[in-house]
Amino acid sequence: MRQQKSRLIGYARVSTDEQATEAQEMELRSVGCDVIVQEHGSGASRARPTLARLMRDISVGDTLVVVRLDRLARSVSHLLEVIEDLAAKGAHFRSLRDPIDTSTPQGMFSLQVLGAVAQLERALISERTKAGIQAAKARGKKPGNPGIRERRPEALAKMTAAQKAAYGERIQATASQWLPTVRRMRPDHTWDDIARVLKQRGLDWTPERLRRAVRWMVSEGMADAALLRKSPPRLPEDRLMTLVVGIHSSNPDLTLREIASQLERLHERTPRGGTKWAPSSVKNLLDRARRSGLLAA
């Protein structure tokens, strides 16, 4: 089979809908970017649906290209997170106006320097914060925002907005770990089933927290609204079949015995009501799923 050609994928971002990305696009095309995606959003926010989709779909060997670092990241630490995610997928990063190209030794050296700068930046911020709190206490001032202590509406509104932004950043940062499983299992499975499968993989989700996270992804255009549809009622054996399919799809390398062990840890009873699962019972359910079209043959 012929190997897919690696691509240069340009990312152009401007802060408002009134601004245009043409200048960035021209520069990206000049270096050979055959795909260019556009984003309109503040540099202070990590909630960028277009970038999230790009990071999800980028392939091994591809290179994400920007004109300047500030088009991609709001801080050094954010930049390093994005580059780490790219590296995990076997992709590279390049900035045209900065000495960053992770496909070259020189670019990796520059990246290491940035990492050291980010570490220093965090240490300095922490030191300044502690010094500021101590100075305020010495002057007899209470720590924290006085507007929040006094329940001022404008201060509370700002706090709520900041909390929502922070929540969105946390969800996006971990989505690659749990969202693929949700996509494979919803809406055929209940949120309880999916949360239990994720827990077996070391991800601690409650059904309600998982539903809320998916609802946020849908509201931001990063996930299909069909994921939120109500699960259809199923007979006990139908539910077991789709559960086994979900476990198998989450990790196709699992053996029948390993799937059986997972079902036992989930305290799922066999079709006959037993507590001990045999590999043959798992195979029967998978074969039935293939016959019904639920699983590819």
Rank of each mutant, 00 (worst) to 15 (best):
R13N: 03
R290Q: 15
M241Y: 01
E154F: 05
L86E: 06
S15Q: 08
G132M: 05
V244F: 01
V82I: 13
R215G: 15
S231G: 08
Q172G: 09
Q200S: 14
L86V: 06
L8R: 05
L111Y: 00
N145S: 10
E150V: 08
H40P: 09
L51V: 14
A20T: 13
E237W: 09
Q200W: 07
P232A: 06
D238P: 03
L86N: 03
V197F: 08
E268K: 05
P99F: 06
G32H: 06
P105F: 00
Q134M: 15
S6K: 07
R128N: 08
M1A: 15
R290N: 03
I83T: 06
R7L: 02
R56T: 13
T181R: 06
I36P: 03
G41W: 01
L51N: 07
T242N: 09
R209C: 09
K230A: 12
L179V: 11
S292N: 15
G202W: 01
A135C: 06
K276T: 03
N251W: 07
D287Q: 10
K137M: 11
A278C: 10
L254K: 05
A173V: 12
P252L: 02
T190Q: 15
E127I: 14
D57A: 07
P143M: 11
A166K: 11
Q3F: 03
P49T: 08
I194Y: 04
S281I: 09
L54I: 04
G144S: 10
R196A: 10
Y167K: 15
I58T: 06
H78G: 00
V244D: 02
P252C: 04
S126E: 12
A161S: 10
G43M: 12
L235C: 11
V197T: 06
L203T: 00
A166N: 12
G107V: 05
V113P: 07
H92L: 04
A91V: 00
D253R: 14
A195H: 08
V14A: 02
E127C: 08
P279C: 02
E18M: 06
R269L: 02
R290V: 11
L243S: 01
E127A: 13
H78R: 05
A157R: 11
L240A: 00
E169C: 10
R152K: 15
L111D: 00
H92I: 03
T275Q: 04
L198V: 03
A118Y: 01
R183D: 12
E18P: 08
C33Y: 00
L203W: 03
K283E: 10
A135R: 12
G90W: 02
N284C: 12
V60S: 09
E220Y: 12
E208T: 13
A165G: 07
Q106P: 06
T174R: 10
I247W: 03
L156Q: 01
D188G: 15
K141I: 09
R46D: 13
E220Q: 14
S110T: 07
S59M: 15
R170V: 05
A278E: 11
D85N: 14
G221T: 08
K164Q: 11
S95L: 00
D98W: 04
Q134C: 13
Q262L: 12
L243T: 01
L266E: 05
